[in-house]
Design a protein around this nucleic acid. Sequence first.
DNA 1: CATGTATGAATGAATG
DNA 2: CATTCATTCATACATG
Lengths: 240, 240
Amino acid sequence: MLYVKVMTDEQLETLRKQIAVYATICEQLVEMHKNLTAQQDLAGVRLGNIYCDPLMTSAGHKITSRQRWTPTPVQLQILERIFDQGTGTPSKQKIKEITSELSQHGQISETNVYNWFQNRRARSKRKQQNSAPNAAESEVETEVDSPKDKKTKPEEFHSQQNSDPRAEDLCFQNPEISSDLHFLDPQSSKEETIFPTDGSLKPTRGLGQMSFYDGLLSNPSMNVPELSISFYHLTILPGS
Amino acid sequence: MLYVKVMTDEQLETLRKQIAVYATICEQLVEMHKNLTAQQDLAGVRLGNIYCDPLMTSAGHKITSRQRWTPTPVQLQILERIFDQGTGTPSKQKIKEITSELSQHGQISETNVYNWFQNRRARSKRKQQNSAPNAAESEVETEVDSPKDKKTKPEEFHSQQNSDPRAEDLCFQNPEISSDLHFLDPQSSKEETIFPTDGSLKPTRGLGQMSFYDGLLSNPSMNVPELSISFYHLTILPGS
DNA sequence: CATGTATGAATGAATG
DNA sequence: CATTCATTCATACATG
């Protein structure tokens, strides 16, 4: 069963504007901050580091944990990008290069990179097979910026929705999805995107724990993540 | 002919996350600024702030909280039983079977089952070794448990999807706002908003703490908007 | 309404 | 690669 969200143009427009405000705010904030730090230089605080967490309480023991490597936002971004480029074979050499590059954005080892790719691929695959059946016109799946979305897959709907669609008048009965639903051809005509930018930030998980600078100021391009969501065009034909 | 935009759950989720990043960035910037300024005109004034909390506006929509799967009593019971049977290896195939069975007692997916066993085993083991080996010198290890750091993290939106338990029969659940798409089932309107409008998304964060950015954030044109876009729920019944 | 706990999920690393 | 383990995160839920 296909299951989607629908927006009117008006809603889309609103969303677009609202998000634009966010982008603006972020840019401004960053700009302001830069000026500020430029003035007094220091600002040593910056690399606040994540896991320090002085609030750890319990007195006595310090934060000794943290053995597991955790990619910083930038690193993750880069990794994802590389991953998307399809070069599914991170050769030994490649690994070294990547590691080298990523090390500029934080602690990292070749093993980390290796494992990352290993896991990324495996999970990406498993996720795919799990949501395969539902993919009617899978190609329509615009890349929504994402490589392979997270684990979230359209919950298995208990199969039994086999009964003939009865509420035809109110429903979208679609004997053949393609006949009732006309998606914009993803290839020929570009679909609409909220923002035309390339955007490729995958906020995989809370960023709160990572050094903010890793994600912003350390980033060469020093920019706020761009948003790029594409939508399908759904044309509703007068029901039968 | 009606004409609307369509989003899949994946896309919606991506959008949600991406926007969350903006919120996080704003929050972090504010936090950083706080640290910076704290160096120069430390302490003092800043506390004068009042918690204007202008963003807490909270339109108060009861965001449909459907994220984490929660096993029903029956399901749990079954799971436990299977677990006790010792078959520590819920093979792929077995998972399917179990899932299939449990689905008769409520929404559930293979992933859920998989995770459940994974966690069950792990925790079962940890508990065991946590109480048994006490005889040994536990020495310094006063707090074996999880550090449970209290780092103040920005809200993160998890939401996976899955959604209404029973949407198969109706097709278009439409929120009130648009009369555009009015041809469907007005009775069961289940509107969804991208974000809870309770302000948790805003860079606001704690109470009065931003002094420098107050102006910015308060600027009418810059004010972070309430991100609340409603979507229609469009369910496409499988053609026969 | 704040704080603590149980637990579903995400993910780095290890093993075959 | 395919699976599995271990650790950590974040939220649901119970408590005072």
